[in-house]
Amino acid sequence: MGIYDEPDVVAMTQAAIEQGFIDGEKLVAGGWSQGGHLSYLSAVRNGKHGFGWKFRGIVAGAGVTDWDSMVLTSDIGYSQAALAGNALWNMDQEDTGTRSGSALWEFKEAVQKARIPPMLMLHGEKDQRVPISQAWGFRRALDQAGLPFEFVTYPREGHFIGERRHIEDMMKRVLRFVTTHLS
């Protein structure tokens, strides 16, 4: 995770810019679940690609921020280990392979290089697939670094948001966030 998929996001964005489909000065990325994971990676790798554009905002929904902890906490931990590349208990101490797709492991450098844009983070309180602790970790990192973010927890919700008022709230927040950061 994070080795091929996030570079694909960059390549597709670059192709869309080159073909005139989107304005490279007005970019917001967002996604849910695996897309949320890619959103967190896009935040910490923002502009690192060298094409001259950056995302002006990121919306991350129910995304993974650290694969090692996912293996320990997800309801499908063994499957998460396969996605991460291994389980901690099967690795040598010096093996850092599972960090390649973990946004939290890239956070410090991203802050030092001023890459992380404003973020909107959305998560279901009762998510067992991608536990809310994934978002808590990134929220704490953003807070400690003094970076702008909005963090929203939807009570009673699992991995997917189902209550109508929560869906409406989420859509309003996303629209407001995108409008604010593309203006």
Rank of each mutant, 00 (worst) to 15 (best):
W136C: 09
G61S: 12
K48M: 10
E150Q: 13
G158N: 14
I76P: 00
V71D: 02
F149D: 00
S39A: 15
A16Q: 07
G50Q: 05
E18A: 15
L120F: 02
Q144F: 11
Q14Y: 07
A29Y: 15
F160Q: 08
S183H: 11
G35Y: 02
R140N: 14
M121P: 00
I17E: 08
M1L: 11
L83H: 06
H181D: 04
T180D: 12
T98K: 03
K172E: 13
L83E: 13
F107N: 05
G50W: 06
P155L: 13
M91A: 09
R129G: 09
M1P: 07
W105M: 06
R156M: 14
V44F: 02
N90A: 13
G20R: 04
R164V: 14
G97F: 00
L104T: 14
T65S: 09
Q144N: 12
P7K: 12
T179D: 11
T179I: 06
Q19W: 09
Y78T: 14
V174P: 02
T153M: 12
S42Y: 02
G137I: 09
V174D: 05
E18S: 13
I58P: 01
V71G: 14
A103R: 02
G85R: 10
E163S: 10
F160A: 14
L41D: 02
F21G: 00
L38K: 02
S33D: 01
K126A: 15
I22G: 03
E94G: 00
H181E: 06
G31K: 04
H159R: 10
I76Y: 13
S133F: 04
W32F: 10
L147V: 10
L27F: 03
D169W: 00
E150S: 09
T65P: 00
D127I: 05
M12F: 13
G158Y: 09
G124T: 06
T179M: 05
G36H: 04
T96H: 13
E125L: 11
H49L: 03
M91P: 00
G35L: 01
E25I: 01
A81N: 06
W53H: 13
F55I: 02
V130N: 10
P148E: 13
L38S: 01
I116V: 10
A62Y: 04
S69H: 06
G47D: 01
A11E: 14
T73R: 11
D5M: 08
N86D: 15
G47L: 04
S33F: 04
H159Q: 11
A15Y: 12
A81H: 05
Y40D: 05
E25K: 15
S183C: 05
G63P: 05
E163A: 13
L142V: 07
P118D: 05
R45A: 03
G85S: 10
A60V: 01
L147W: 09
F55P: 04
R164P: 01
S33I: 07
G97V: 01
W53Q: 11
S79L: 14
I17G: 08
V130M: 12
R156N: 15
E18Q: 14
L122N: 03
W136I: 12
H181G: 09
M1K: 06
G31L: 07
R140A: 11
D127S: 00
A82I: 15
L175C: 03
G162P: 00
H159Y: 09
P155S: 13
L27R: 07
L72I: 11
S74A: 14
V174H: 02
S102V: 04
K172T: 07
Q112C: 03
G97Y: 00
